[in-house]
């Protein structure tokens, strides 16, 4: 498949009343990649997805999906995408098969293809035994699997997954990751939002971090981690203030931050070699060291580095905006 830009967003802006949920963002997604869109609650992730999937009107700027403008050709955009919503969207009184059947029909799939796909997907998400079970009797993980299966009915060119593994146990998450990877290998571009950094790290080819409606970091997860330095070191001492000054004097320490439990050091060189130097310089000052820990920076650290530590409530209306058209 030809690689090209499948999603292009330029200077997109979206406000709910006075609140600017998305503030002048631009980004693009290459065809065939898994793209992760990360951000704290209320950062503007879902709003962006809703604009891209034509659930919300494009207020300012431009957005193209598969080369089609969401403003002028929403109908064609809808034909080429699949969506798994953030919140549960299932008819509680339809069975598993009926849910898929309903979806296939409203997407005008031909009968043969629809039936074949249903069978294939029910096997894929391992719901064979629940085919005639109503969805309200399924467990949370099964519902989620069903929703993902439904999103795949039409073999979309782009699949939007809005926090697909929220509230699932590790086994189910692992399994869903496998599906997502498999689907991606078959040529579907994946647009993922998530709060789980390990998920983004393992799955995605490229990551973009959004906060307060603006994109604040982008790149591969490797490159983002590398901006944080080679290694991270955690220190607990009897006098953190003095120790911080001493640690700063070591040239390989690029950043010293005070965290609740002590000091966090970002090292620009191999931690195994820098650590003795740091410890020596602190001990020279006569400061007692209580504990030392070293680790590779994770995407979690990147995320916290860029978005800060405070907890967000998120404005109430951003995660589930009211449809405007009806």
């Amino acid at each position: 498949m030809m690689a090209g830009k499948i999603i292009e967003v330029e200077n997109l802006e979206h406000s709910f009343g006075d609140f600017k949920a998305v503030d002048n963002i631009s980004f693009s997604v290459e065809e065939g990649e898994i793209f992760s869109f990360l951000g704290p609650n209320g950062a503007g992730k879902s709003t962006t997805i809703n604009v891209l999937t034509t659930q919300l009107a494009c207020q300012k700027g431009s957005a193209k999906v598969c080369g089609l403008d969401v403003r002028t050709r929403p109908h064609d955009v809808k034909k080429s995408i699949g969506i798994v919503f953030q919140d549960e969207v299932l008819d509680r009184d339809l069975t598993v098969r009926e849910t898929l059947e309903f979806h296939g029909r409203i997407y005008s799939m031909p009968r043969d293809q629809r039936l074949a796909r249903e069978k294939e997907l029910i096997e894929l998400v391992e719901l064979e035994e629940k085919v005639n079970e109503r969805t309200k009797n399924l467990s949370g993980g099964m519902k989620r699997r069903l929703e993902i299966a439904r999103g795949l009915m039409t073999r979309p060119r782009v699949l939007f997954l809005d926090e697909p593994t929220i509230g699932l146990d590790p086994q189910t998450r692992l399994r869903i990751w496998d599906y997502i990877k498999g689907i991606n290998e078959e040529g579907t571009t994946i647009f993922l939002t998530t709060h789980y950094m390990d998920e983004a790290d393992r799955l995605s080819d490229r990551v973009e971090i959004i906060d307060h409606g603006k994109i604040i970091a982008s790149g591969t997860s490797e490159s983002l981690k590398n901006t944080l330095g080679e290694d991270m070191m955690y220190l607990e001492t009897v006098d953190d203030e003095k120790a911080a000054a001493a640690a700063k004097s070591v040239s390989e320490v690029s950043e010293v931050k005070r965290v609740s439990s002590g000091l966090e050091l970002i090292l620009s060189a191999d931690g195994a070699k820098v650590m003795p130097k740091v410890l020596r310089s602190i001990e020279k000052e006569g400061i007692g060291i209580l504990s030392v820990k070293m680790k590779k920076p994770s995407l979690d650290d990147v995320f916290v580095h860029y978005t800060g530590r405070e907890i967000r409530d998120g404005p109430p209306e951003t995660s589930m905006p009211k449809p405007r058209r009806h």
Binding site: Q55, F85, E88, V89, L90, Y107, S108, R325, H326
Partner: peptide, 17 residues
């Protein structure tokens, strides 16, 4: 309320259907 409307509106089906 249950959200199924969202699925219907997200599909390429025209809303008068």
């Amino acid at each position: 309320n249950w959200g199924i409307m969202k699925e219907m509106l997200a599909s390429p089906m025209r809303s008068y259907h």
